Simulated scan of single mutants.
Amino acid sequence: MGMIQEFKTFAMRGNVVDMAVGIIIGGAFGKIVSSFVADVIMPPIGILIGGVDFSNLAIVLKEAVGDVAAVTINYGAFIQTVLDFIIIAFAIFMAIKAMNSLKKEKEETPEEPPAPSKEETLLTEIRDVLQQK
Rank of each mutant, 00 (worst) to 15 (best):
1 M>L: 07
132 Q>H: 09
7 F>D: 09
7 F>G: 01
132 Q>P: 01
117 S>K: 03
62 K>E: 13
40 V>Y: 07
131 Q>G: 12
62 K>L: 12
45 I>M: 05
71 V>T: 15
95 A>T: 12
44 P>F: 03
2 G>F: 08
25 I>W: 03
125 E>R: 15
44 P>T: 06
87 I>S: 00
93 F>E: 03
105 E>L: 10
20 A>L: 13
95 A>N: 06
126 I>L: 15
8 K>I: 14
33 V>R: 02
67 D>M: 09
16 V>T: 15
2 G>P: 05
38 A>N: 12
104 K>T: 15
26 G>D: 02
1 M>R: 07
112 E>F: 03
60 V>Y: 10
107 E>D: 13
69 A>K: 15
126 I>P: 08
124 T>F: 11
101 S>P: 03
132 Q>C: 05
112 E>I: 06
37 V>A: 04
67 D>V: 11
94 M>F: 04
57 L>S: 01
3 M>P: 05
2 G>D: 13
79 I>S: 11
71 V>A: 10
16 V>S: 09
106 K>I: 15
24 I>T: 09
54 F>H: 11
125 E>L: 14
19 M>T: 15
69 A>R: 15
83 L>V: 11
110 P>D: 03
36 F>L: 14
25 I>P: 00
60 V>L: 06
12 M>G: 15
90 F>W: 13
30 G>L: 01
39 D>K: 09
4 I>N: 14
132 Q>N: 13
40 V>I: 11
22 G>P: 00
56 N>W: 07
24 I>D: 02
125 E>C: 06
130 L>R: 10
103 K>C: 01
